[in-house]
């Protein structure tokens, strides 16, 4: 059995002058959650749409669940589920009617479509809302229904394109739990996100994409190691404390400490974490600098992105791939 759920080599996709995919490579192992991380316009959505047979590639080869995307798109479609940037469910139908409709369109026939809808409503905790019109669902419920609809044939590979964009924190939590449960059930998930904490929380492996190219591919932990060791973080109580505190941190850290003046926060990479923390805490106390918070933290994926690309996730936004205008849904 093929051990790779997705295998893509040198994918090319051009829109006029813009190269949405520029030699993009990706390998996703079976039974894992793989995060595709990058800012708006990096090519995440283009990559997923191409792998899900929605876009024709200009170059490169891709296999999904062992089937060639270019040669047998229908074969691919029978083995994948796709939940795009919108909860692509019908608002004028109830949750159950949606699942039955998609079940019929997946050629389950009326009886099995009904039974499968029952199973999925249970699995995604939508039994109580089953008869309600989807127009009255919260954002999180809608996404769960969307996930359920993409899981009708229990596909081998599930593509989730920014599954929590536009959701409030509660909705995000609901979707995360649903995704984790799917993976425990054996589904391979390729997930795009521009939320770094999302990739960190869900994915066992992350591909960082920038300007249509994979610029890193590793575990979240290893990716963080590439930015160096742990960070020390000091928040002082008064603006006037920033200068002496900065001097103290600068003595123990590697490289330049960075300062967030608005939040009176200093952070810097350190080699020997415990020694550095002890030293900084003791010196600050000696100098009577008022500390609001002090601690060590692992580097975030924001730090990773900055190290890999030289720019933060925010300044690589381009007009080429517009951000989805997802409506904010707040659960009642």
């Amino acid at each position: 059995m093929e051990t790779h759920a997705v295998r893509a080599e040198g994918l090319q996709k051009r829109y006029g002058e813009k190269r949405a995919l520029d030699g993009f490579d990706l390998t996703v192992h079976r039974g894992t959650v793989h995060g595709l991380l990058g800012p708006n316009g990096a090519g995440k959505t283009t990559a997923v749409r191409a792998l899900a047979t929605l876009l024709k590639l200009d170059g490169g080869r891709a296999q999904v669940a062992g089937v060639d995307v270019g040669k047998d798109p229908r074969g691919v479609r029978a083995k994948i589920g796709l939940a795009g940037q919108y909860a692509a469910v019908d608002e004028l139908l109830s949750g159950r009617q949606n699942l039955e409709l998609f079940g019929r369109l997946f050629h389950l026939g009326g009886r099995r479509a009904r039974l499968r809808a029952d199973e999925l409503l249970e699995q995604f905790d939508l039994v109580e809302a089953a008869a309600k019109s989807v127009g009255d669902y919260s954002g999180g419920m809608r996404r769960r229904l969307d996930l359920a609809a993409s899981m009708i044939l229990a596909p081998e590979v599930l593509f989730l394109d920014e599954p929590t964009t536009g959701l409030d924190p509660r909705g995000r939590g609901e979707v995360w739990e649903a995704v984790r449960a799917l993976v425990d059930g054996g589904t391979t998930v390729l997930l795009t996100t521009q939320y770094l904490d999302e990739a960190d929380k869900l994915a066992s492996r992350i591909t960082v994409i920038d300007q249509g190219r994979a610029i890193a591919d590793d575990t979240p932990a290893e990716l963080k190691n590439t930015v160096g060791g742990d960070r020390i973080e000091v928040v002082v109580a008064e603006d006037s404390d920033l200068v002496p505190a900065l001097a103290v941190v600068a003595r123990v850290c590697e490289g330049e400490p960075s300062v967030d003046r608005a939040e009176r926060r200093i952070h810097a990479a350190v080699a020997d974490r415990v020694a550095a923390l002890t030293e900084v805490a003791r010196t600050l106390q000696d100098q009577a600098v008022q500390v609001e918070d002090i601690g060590l933290r692992r580097p975030s994926l924001d730090d990773v992105f900055l190290t890999l690309t030289g720019h933060t996730t925010k300044d690589s936004e381009e007009p080429g791939e517009p951000a989805p205008s997802v409506r904010e849904e707040v659960p009642a």
Binding site: H107, R116, G185
Partner: peptide, 21 residues
Amino acid sequence: LTAERRPLTAERTPVDLSVDS
């Protein structure tokens, strides 16, 4: 949330998902 496609009741088996391509 259930990880696997458990039958809803003891006597119900998971729906057969084989379809005509």
